[in-house]
Computed example of a mutant assay.
Amino acid sequence: MHAVRGLDLAVAQGTVCGVLGPNGAGKTTAVRLLTTLLRPDAGSARIAGHDLVREAAAVRRSIGVTGQYASVDGDLTGRENLQLFARLHRVRAPGRRADELLDRFGLTEAAGRAASTYSGGMRRRLDLAASLIRRPEVLFLDEPTTGLDPASRNVIWEVVRELTADGTTVLLTTQYLEEADRLADDIALVDHGRVAHSGSPEQFKSLIGTHVEVVVADTSVMSKAAGVLDQLTGGEPSFDHERSAVGAVTRDSTLTLPRLVRELDAAGVPLLDASLRPPTLDEVFLRLTDHKELAV
């Protein structure tokens, strides 16, 4: 049985690659392989220009890793944790580097407290700070914001943006589709240990098309509205009788809201509301993982 097989992935320098996939798809195994924690049975990979197997030590010197669970020592203070990591990595002026990172992650006030007293979000921020001790060329983040409150999540998102602006390459696995949409330049959908689909968030969304919905003033004209949507979108209309709404999906990028309203008015359909919206990554993810014909 293969956890990862035929995984083909390329990430440009200074970008974020979001790795998505259902539970058990092979995301964490891929991270463990690419960070030298597991040895591959076959295949090849280069991290920051270094061969993953033949130059494993050079790979480790080039990367930072934040796993799914915080790995800080609860008996040490926040500052002591970072100073320990700095000394292990032979960083010059470990105290200064620790203080820089404590400030960057908003932990200066708590620096003298034992990490065991930190909240979950604070421990995750401290863990991410530890992975940045040596200013890595490539940073691996394995579901770094799982379980965090929105404020802590936003802090980590902002740090990731700053890192890529400075040239760091980030590989991010996440279960939060909004996170991938906000941070990732490219997305790789992993399923059964391989990349089933890849592209930018916009390219993923284009696989579904634009959602069109109208809410009519009179339920007796819902069928007439559905006929207009069928003609304009080419998609099979859906009905929400509770809301007196009719919806459809179109890949026609030329369809505009004014045109939609004009066509419905010409057909004698009184409206309460009409909207066009792009799909969310959640909808794309569900479509790609439920309907394999869309995966390539």
Rank of each mutant, 00 (worst) to 15 (best):
Ile187Val: 15
Ala180Met: 06
Leu207His: 09
Ser200Pro: 01
His241Gln: 07
Thr35Cys: 07
Ile63Ser: 01
Arg259Glu: 14
Ala274Gly: 08
Val160Gly: 00
Arg251Thr: 14
Asp166Glu: 15
Gly78Arg: 15
Val19Asn: 01
Ser200Trp: 14
Ala3Thr: 10
Thr15Cys: 06
Gly6Ala: 03
Glu162Pro: 01
Arg96Glu: 12
Asp181Phe: 04
Arg287Leu: 15
Gly106Asn: 12
Ala12Gln: 13
Leu276Gln: 12
Gln231Ile: 07
Glu179Asn: 01
Leu126Ile: 12
Glu178Val: 06
Pro278Glu: 12
Ser244Thr: 02
Ala129Lys: 08
Ser244Lys: 05
Tyr69Trp: 03
Asp41Arg: 00
Glu162Thr: 04
Glu263His: 10
Glu242Thr: 05
Asp240Cys: 03
Arg61Leu: 10
Arg194Asn: 07
Leu139Arg: 05
Asp252Leu: 08
Leu20Asp: 04
Asn154Lys: 05
Gly18His: 00
Leu82Gly: 06
Val72Leu: 11
Thr66His: 00
Leu37Val: 11
His192Ile: 02
Ser131Tyr: 00
Glu158Ser: 14
Asp265Tyr: 04
Asp73Ile: 09
Asp273Phe: 09
Asn154Cys: 02
Arg277Lys: 12
Val170Gly: 03
Thr15Val: 04
Ala58Arg: 12
Glu158Asp: 15
Leu52Asp: 05
Arg124Ser: 03
Ile133Arg: 00
Thr36Glu: 05
Val212Ser: 08
Thr108Met: 10
Arg123Pro: 06
Glu162Lys: 00
Glu178Met: 08
Ser200Cys: 12
Ala184Gly: 01
Pro40Ser: 06
Val284Asn: 10
Val195Gln: 01
Ala226Arg: 04
Arg243Asn: 12
Thr233Asn: 08
Gly268Trp: 06
Gly18Tyr: 02
Pro150Gly: 03
Val155Gly: 06
Ala225Trp: 01
Leu286Cys: 09
Asn154Gln: 07
Glu55Gln: 14
Arg90Gln: 14
Ala10Phe: 08
Leu88Phe: 15
Arg32Gly: 07
Ala295Gln: 15
Ser223Lys: 13
Ser198Gln: 14
Gly67Met: 02
Val72Lys: 01
Arg287Phe: 10
Gly67Val: 03
Gly193Leu: 06
Arg60Val: 05
Arg92Asn: 06
Ser223Gly: 15
Thr289Ile: 10
Gly199Ala: 08
Leu207Asn: 04
Leu294His: 15
Thr256Gly: 03
Gly112Ser: 13
Val284Gln: 10
Gly18Pro: 00
Val53Gly: 04
His241Cys: 00
Leu183Ile: 05
Gly106Glu: 13
Val91Ala: 08
Pro258Asn: 03
Gly193Asp: 11
Val138Ala: 05
Arg97Trp: 12
Gly18Leu: 05
Thr77Gly: 07
Arg259Val: 13
Arg194Ala: 14
Leu20Cys: 13
Gly235Trp: 07
Leu255Asn: 06
Asp73His: 14
Glu100Ala: 09
His197Ser: 11
Ala70Leu: 02
Gly112Tyr: 03
Leu232Arg: 07
His211Met: 04
Thr254Cys: 06
Ala184Arg: 03
Asp73Val: 10
Val16Asn: 02
Lys224Gly: 03
Thr289Pro: 09
Asp127Pro: 13
Val221Gly: 08
Arg243Ala: 14
Ser116Trp: 11
Ala86His: 09
Tyr176Gly: 01
Ser275Arg: 11
Gly193Ala: 11
Leu264Cys: 07
Pro270Asp: 05
Gln83Phe: 06
Ala184Met: 09
Arg262Pro: 00
Val72Asp: 08
